[in-house]
Amino acid sequence: MEFLQLAINGIALGAAYALVALGFVLILNATGAVNFAQGDLVAAGGFLAVALAGFLPVPGLLLLPLVVILMAGLGLAVSAAAYWPLRDRPPVAVFISTIALGIVIQNGLNGLFGAEPRAAPPLFSGGHLEFFGLVIARQSLAIMGVAALLIGGVQLLLKHTQLGRRLRATAQDREVAAALGVPVGAMVALTFALAAALAGVAGLLLANQFFITPTHGTDFIVKAYIAVVIGGWGRVGGALAGAMLVALFETVVAAWTDYAVATGLLYAALLTILVFRPQGLFGEAEGRRA
């Protein structure tokens, strides 16, 4: 019973991490660049939801469209400032530029909102449900549902739409894609907008469940990075599996041992996976290497 409860909490937490990782993977796929500001974008989304809730006291679901639109705009700004000028430079240049941008976002939030933890409104309503002695927060269900919808939606978009094919063509070889008439610049900008919008959704959901402070972005990005590497660089499904693994260490393994040991074991597991499968658990998405 206790194990079940831990597993359920682990899956809910994993869904949250997967949401963070999703935007990270999208940008990785489209540009081959690591967006280290993704965690800070999640924090920005959380604070945006908090700020909007101050003006509009409505459930999170109604704030969601606003958050998505505003964050997509922020995503465009991120791509214009930190990616586009460096698109032909070595990927590590973007690594640093997004770290710098993360510093700007994090301290901008700290300046604007202050350092105190904040809570965004729940998606539908707060509280929790009980089944057969298992407790599950309504917001956890909302996170799992939204994560499933968005991950499925992104897969569908990439695999089965014209837009998705163009995005993938851009990801695989920008020059070839441009020669085939794909508007490469627009595709990259769109990816950043989409990734930031996803970060906004993640921020809104997590800022209710786990609260949000300006420094939380750093915790999120490290976990998303681990999830994406474990799952195989650039794989959406792999990132989901990686996020679940990270979360299970934080809940189930931590319950068997303790948090410090569980964190140590997570890194040990990570190294072991990389030693035996140097391309991640599910292999690398083809033709992508940052």
């Binding site: 831990l6 786990f210 915790d219 490290v222 809940t251 303790d258 948090y259 569980a262």
Partner: peptide, 11 residues
Amino acid sequence: GLDVSVRDVTA
């Protein structure tokens, strides 16, 4: 001891 990055304290 809990690290500040721990989000789920069920364990």
